[in-house]
Computed example of a mutant assay.
Amino acid sequence: MSHPPAGRPFAAEIFDLDGTLLDTESLGLEAGIEALAELGHNVDAATMRGLIGLDSPTALAVLSRHLGVVLEQERTMSHWRAAMARRCRSGVPVMEGALALLDRIDALGLPRAVATNSRTQGAVSKLEASSLAGRFEVVIGFEQVARGKPAPDVFIEAARRLGIAPARCLVFEDSDVGTRAALAAGMTVVQIPDQSARGPSGAHFLARTLAEGAAWADLVPAGG
């Protein structure tokens, strides 16, 4: 793990959404299991955890191979989205430290974006159901670019929309897939590993919490 360059060089922050800012991954896995059961397929939690960080088409391709069937994308995702919407009606919890970090970024006057392997409207809906509504200038979902993570496209597009060079962007990610994508975009990456992380990912810093990652990046005082 390297140290960040001196002088706080970051001109923008880009965040993954699920599992990084919002505590939604367990909800999403439960919704997926429910949706697949509605379609007549039984999938265990361990298999679902292996999908964390993948975009929808890739996740469905993995599930299709696992089940030995061809899952029709729109029908499957329609059930999945409906199951997720039911779980989000009572509000979406945020990850510890997310609000404090965004407040600090506001104080520093830095722009920020979300770059996610979810669809953009789904991401916006989840943000609106949480306490993070209105906190991001840009939200980029996988359908806005040619390729989802682990390709770098969503991060490159987020930087382009913010008007900031990728090399001056700091990324917060939870998954190995997202970390690889942000590194391929030429960005500095803080990873807060999720339950699917499998080992060294190449992130510049592995943090236990958002606050620890922010301190490493010199966005907040250590311990602050």
Rank of each mutant, 00 (worst) to 15 (best):
D174H: 04
A6G: 14
A214R: 05
T120K: 11
L170P: 03
R147N: 14
I156S: 01
R135V: 12
H41G: 12
R87G: 06
S131K: 09
A214P: 03
A61L: 11
M187Q: 03
R180V: 10
R161S: 08
I192Y: 00
V189Y: 03
S2A: 13
A207Q: 09
R65G: 12
L17N: 09
A222T: 14
D44K: 08
V145T: 15
R8F: 09
A211P: 01
L162G: 05
A46Q: 14
E30K: 04
V138Y: 03
F155L: 11
A185I: 02
A182H: 03
T58N: 07
R198D: 15
P221F: 10
Q195N: 09
Q73C: 12
G32Q: 08
A215Y: 04
I156H: 01
R49H: 14
G178Q: 06
A61T: 14
E157C: 03
A203G: 07
G163P: 12
E13P: 00
D218W: 02
A181M: 10
V62Y: 11
L29T: 01
R65A: 15
A207P: 08
I105V: 15
A203W: 10
Q191T: 09
G122W: 07
Q191E: 14
G40W: 06
P221T: 11
G109D: 08
A31H: 01
L183G: 04
P221L: 12
E25M: 09
N42V: 15
P150H: 09
R81F: 12
V43L: 05
L63C: 14
A184C: 05
E74W: 02
L71F: 03
E157L: 14
P5Q: 11
A107I: 00
A217V: 11
C88Q: 09
F155E: 07
A11N: 03
R168D: 15
R86W: 04
L21A: 13
D106V: 04
R75Q: 15
A215G: 09
A113Y: 03
P5F: 02
